[in-house]
Design a protein around this nucleic acid. Structure first.
Lengths: 220, 220
DNA sequence: ACCTGAACACCGTTCAAGT
DNA sequence: ACCTGAACACCGTTCAAGT
């Protein structure tokens, strides 16, 4: 009788969801390079090896927390046209990624989990509604994905530029002082000064969608 | 008299270039996760700590080998129009990245070295020749960069799909069997079957360049 | 079924010391 | 200037053993 399972902190028991959630928080707070099985176990107040009953290895854990982020993306309502649907998916994905910057560089390099597959399914579905030529739809899917991915990475990189990090500030200084790459310096300044339109994300996205639509009508 | 420096393997002496080249080879052969300071030192037949006289730390080494890859990109000849220049830069960058797949996921996440800055400078220069509106040029720069980056990652991911790796094969099987994501499965099949046009890379690139040009002429 | 400590085979890097 | 071994503070994971 009584609980057969070990009880800790009231009713909390070691769980796949708990492990993944906690690991995500750890990555959010300290960066993903600080996430280790040992630190995670210490955080969860359990033995290191207990984790391996819920997760095959560290790689699987990383895949799980990336998919956790993918799970934060809002599913689009069903009553929008395809362009509106694509736009909502893109914006929501970007927001989720910016909430968890560590996920961005590994997003496309890790095997997708169920949440990310669901996301891809939604985007492919929206593009199917556009009735594009199959190869144009495929190209569009990748162009849109790349745009989201690249914009998130860009935002993160430029964000670190203005951050407290004295070492990058020093490096930017060196770059400007060298004067070997005037256009790069100008480009950095362009971004730093906030001259870039605040909604460049959807602006470029619309440009992509226009190109897809135009190509299709032009050739059919 | 005689050589003041320690000589190993005939005339070979420990050198920044030697270290970076060797590290790149190690990453090429065994993957970047196998690249450690200790293995690199063993490869170079020197003490581990000797490396630290040429390289600040492992992060600096990683930046150096990514920049080594950027250095393989062919500089475009000066007598082309801006579209031709952009196309050559893009193709040459893609080729270099596919020769060193490990560099792709970290490419945009690491601080650029001189070779990568030179590359950015060239691309910005080509776009400057196009006389686009500054914000369109900026957007174009990122769209083109994202396209190269995303296409390389895509190619690598799908490449690993057909590779010997039994574990991904198993996972694709599971995905198909689940039938939860019919469009994803269809999309995978589309790529696997080689239905995708072989030059989708330049095709999409041209679509981007068209969009840039069209937007500019339409609004000026 | 769930949990675990000890042990193994690794890491990057500091420090103090050699030539 | 260039090189280095020992030591420190970590890693992920196997294995054998506990409840």
């Amino acid at each position: 009788m009584g609980r057969p399972k070990k009880v800790r902190d009231g009713d909390a028991v070691l769980t796949y969801e708990l492990i993944v959630t906690r690991a995500t928080q750890l990555a959010d707070n300290d960066g993903i390079e600080q996430l280790s099985m040992r630190r995670l176990a210490a955080d969860l107040d359990c033995g290191v090896m207990s984790l391996y009953h819920y997760v095959a290895d560290k790689e699987a854990l990383i895949e799980a927390i990336v998919d956790q982020v993918a799970g934060e993306v809002m599913p689009p309502p069903g009553d929008l046209d395809w362009r509106g649907t694509v736009k909502l998916i893109a914006e929501s994905t970007l927001e989720a990624q910016l909430r968890h910057p560590w996920a961005v560089p590994i997003w496309s390099a890790t095997w997708p989990g169920p949440n990310r597959f669901a996301l891809v399914e939604q985007l492919l579905g929206a593009l199917a509604d556009a009735d594009l030529r199959p190869d144009i739809a495929d190209l569009g899917f990748h162009a849109i994905s790349n745009h989201i991915q690249g914009f998130a990475q860009q935002k993160i990189s430029f964000g670190q530029l203005d951050a407290k990090s004295a070492i990058t500030a020093e490096r930017v200084q060196a770059l400007v002082a060298d004067a070997d790459f005037p256009r790069v310096v100008e480009h950095l300044e362009f971004h730093r000064s906030g001259q870039v339109t605040p909604d460049e994300f959807v602006f470029t996205l619309e440009l992509i969608l226009d190109a897809l639509e135009n190509y299709d009508t032009a050739s059919s």
